[in-house]
Design a protein around this nucleic acid. Structure first.
Length: 767
DNA sequence: TTAGGGTTAG
């Protein structure tokens, strides 16, 4: 009796014999979404019966007898076309991969089997079993060798299994072998994606690019898909250290080429790329890139535009910000709160606060039917902008306004901006009031708050208060940082209390804060200005020992100090060091040397330094001419100085206040007060503002000539210019005006400056 | 969205 004929009849019975072991085939059917009421197809039942029967036979018969087993042959090869599905099911349900391999061997030796794909699929089952059994790459390797020996081509699933398994076992050469030996028609996008991931994981970037290259061709038969994109870009990030990094340009180019196949990066990855381009100062490239992607139909979110806008804002490039905004509008991309935040902040940083306020108004009023509620950050940017231009009262009003907006309570930053505004405006009392207010309100001050206050006090002559406040804060958990120390060190250097500055530096290190380059520069400059060049050199060494590389300004500080103390050998040492570390002297370096030589009266050397400066591609600056003019004046060669002055206008430079001061001072000293007065007039015409030094020089000159009326005119001018008198002004005027019985004029003069009694005045009195 | 510094000519 033929088993084939009886198989369908027995199918039910056979299934009942194995009730606890439903075949995965049936399990699969069960899991399918198809209606369960539908009875299983007759075919499926037939297949299942055959498979079960075959498995029984195979297990009962030793494998070397399989070839001679007639029942087996009859069951499996009922015709010239055995069912591939049956053979695959049997193979995968054999107890081990070696049994399965024997079965494949049995199949291949059977001449009834014509279709090599059947063998391929059975071989896949062998590989699956081997992988599940031991996951040993050596076994898989051996099986791959067998497949070639038996001339059983791999199918896609087998290839993927091998490529991926070898990749996971870090046997990437094996993966590559499988891929390369694969039939070209099988090197599908899917197989390539897997291979690319394997290559990148191992750091073989160029190999991965080669595989990708074929996919990215315009008429590619294996075009990239989302899987390719994920495998490639994720792989690039996860790749081993030894793999080379693709340049941002290469990545951008690849992203565009993916785009040509309508495969696009998600918005987060795209944004990261744009930000990276912008950060590496390639705004144009970022913009072109974005345009290119939009042309290809990529969905672009506002965040990408924001990234570019923000970089343009940092560069203060308002024109291009505007054209980007126009482009957004043309493309119907709606700005969000971040867009407005960038605009407002950029305008504030450009000191265009009114324009920022206008944007703010537009945003909350709603433009084109869209209104955006401002947030704390928007308000803070505006308040900071107002404070930075001296409109702190308006900033205060803005804080009041923000309280009426939901979820927009002032925070530490809000208060810090206002405190800084009032400090810079000299209203230290108000700043302290705000400090108390924030604490009462439960807004925690941070180290920036105390640094701002300390800096404000220091800049307004309240260094003692600042130091007391600093000490007070140390007990409250508001730990000082290197900025706090630098602020105080600067202040003590400015009042020539260098020892205290150094003491603070030591205290800072002792308390565990590490110094940065800035605090070193500050001290080096302070010590240099005090003429303590040995100490300055000492800190210069410490700076380098701490691992910082001095910049050119730091070198210049020292050269200037050594020049002023006539230690030219030391100055040359520094010049040599600049060269040794591969840096180049800048205009300030040359100006410092020109100053030194022209002060010595050695004009020929000074001029040859200037020549060298030009040879080095540096253009003399206004300070270069100032140095020469000053030296001429010191040597009594005022006409020579005036000649240089007239020559300045032939260059592209403009004389500034210092240049005029040099001449005015010299003219007054040499009894040429009339010429000095006409120069002052010239300043007014040219829009150059006189300062306290200018007025002091003039007062001295006028005093010598007893030109009282001219002095009164200048006193009025000082009030109009809001140019504060200093102790020199007071000394000259007090002496002169009291001697001529005009002390009332001095009192009226002082009233013009409305100096309110402040802690600063108190401190000055106590000092 | 907030804080610190140093270089040249007066």
């Amino acid at each position: 009796m033929s088993l084939i004929n009886s198989a369908p009849k027995h199918s039910k019975l056979l299934r009942l014999l194995e009730p606890k072991k439903p075949s995965s085939f049936l399990l699969l059917r069960h899991l399918c979404a198809e209606p369960s009421s539908q009875p299983p197809k007759q075919d499926d039942e037939a297949i299942e019966a055959t498979v079960t029967q075959a498995l029984e036979l195979l297990q009962q018969t030793p494998h070397h007898d399989w070839a001679s087993s007639q029942p087996l042959h009859t069951l499996l090869f009922p015709s010239s076309n055995p069912s591939p599905s049956v053979l695959f099911q049997i193979t995968r349900r054999l107890p081990s991969h070696s049994a399965a391999l024997n079965f494949v061997d049995y199949l291949r030796s059977n001449s009834a089997l014509q279709d090599v794909q059947v063998l391929s699929s059975a071989f896949l089952a062998v590989l699956n079993l081997a992988k599940r059994e031991s996951n040993s790459p050596e076994t898989l390797s051996e099986l791959y060798r067998v497949s070639k020996e038996w001339k059983i081509p791999l199918n896609v699933d087998a290839a993927v299994l091998l490529v991926r398994s070898f990749g996971m076992a870090e046997m990437v050469d094996e993966s590559a072998l499988v891929f390369n030996e694969l039939d070209p028609s099988l090197k599908s996008t899917y197989v390539r994606n897997v291979f690319i991931a394997v290559l990148l994981k191992d750091g073989r970037v160029d190999d991965a690019l080669k595989v990708l290259e074929e996919m990215l061709q315009p008429e590619s038969e294996v075009p990239p898909n989302d899987g390719t994109r994920d495998a490639f870009f994720h792989g690039l990030r996860m790749k081993k250290r030894n793999g080379r990094w693709l340049s941002i340009e290469e990545i951008v180019q690849l992203v565009v080429r993916f785009g040509e196949h309508s495969v696009f990066l998600n918005s987060i990855m795209l944004n990261k790329l744009i930000v990276q381009l912008c950060r590496s100062h390639q705004i144009d490239q970022a913009w072109d890139f974005l345009r290119e992607l939009m042309k290809l139909g990529a969905p672009i979110e506002v965040s990408c535009f924001n990234a570019i806008l923000s970089e343009l804002g940092r560069k203060r490039d308002v024109n291009r910000m505007n054209s980007l905004l126009r482009e957004m509008k043309d493309r119907d991309i709606q700005p969000n709160i971040i867009t407005f935040g960038i605009l407002i902040n950029s305008l504030c940083k450009l000191r265009k606060v009114d324009a920022a306020l206008e944007v703010f108004k537009k945003m909350s009023e709603g433009n084109d039917g869209i209104s955006i509620e401002p947030d704390v950050i928007t308000y803070n940017a505006l308040i900071d902008g107002l404070c930075k231009v001296g409109r702190q009262e308006e900033g205060l009003a803005m804080m009041k306004q923000m309280r009426s907006v939901n979820g927009c309570a002032p925070n530490t930053v809000t208060y810090n901006c206002l405190i800084d505004g009032f400090c810079k405006g000299g209203e230290i009392d108000m700043a302290r009031e705000l400090f108390d207010q924030m604490k009462n309100e439960g807004v925690m001050p941070n180290v920036i708050t105390i640094n701002t206050l300390i800096d404000g006090m220091c800049h307004h002559g309240m260094i003692n208060s600042a130091f007391m406040f600093f000490n007070e804060m140390q007990g409250t958990g508001l730990r000082a940082n290197v900025v706090t120390y630098t602020t105080l060190i600067t202040a003590f250097c400015n009042v020539n209390n260098i020892d205290k500055a150094v003491e603070l530096f030591d205290q800072m290190l002792k308390s565990g804060r590490s110094a940065d380059a800035i605090v070193y520069y500050t001290l080096i400059s302070g010590l240099t200005q005090a003429g303590r060049m040995n100490d300055a050199s000492n800190f210069f060494s410490k700076l380098k020992e701490a691992g910082f590389r001095p910049d050119i300004a730091c070198y210049n500080t020292l050269i200037g100090g050594f020049c002023r103390t006539n230690k030219m050998d030391k100055a040359y040492e520094i010049l040599k060091e600049i060269e040794d570390v591969g840096m180049r002297p800048d205009a300030v370096t040359y100006n410092t040397l020109i100053t030194y030589f022209s002060r010595l009266g050695n004009f020929s050397v000074a001029l040859s330094v200037m020549k060298k400066m030009r040879q080095q591609g540096l253009v003399p600056t206004i300070a270069t001419y100032g140095a020469l003019m000053h030296a001429c004046c010191l040597a009594g060669e005022i006409d020579e100085a005036l000649k240089i002055f007239r020559n300045i206008s032939k260059s592209k430079l403009f004389p500034n206040t210092i240049i005029y001061n040099i001449l005015i001072e010299a003219l007054c000293k040499n009894n040429k007060v009339e010429v000095a007065l006409s120069l002052m007039n010239d300043m007014k015409v040219k829009g150059v503002k006189p300062n306290t030094t200018t007025y002091n020089a003039m007062f001295k000159g006028l005093k010598e000539k007893h030109s009282l009326e001219d002095a009164f005119k200048l006193m009025d001018g000082m009030i109009i210019d809001a140019c504060n008198p200093d102790y020199i002004t007071m000394e000259i005027l007090t002496e002169w005006l009291s001697a001529v019985g005009e002390i009332d004029k001095l009192k009226t003069f002082l009233k013009g400056f409305e100096v309110s009694p402040s802690d600063a005045a108190l401190e000055t009195l106590q000092a």
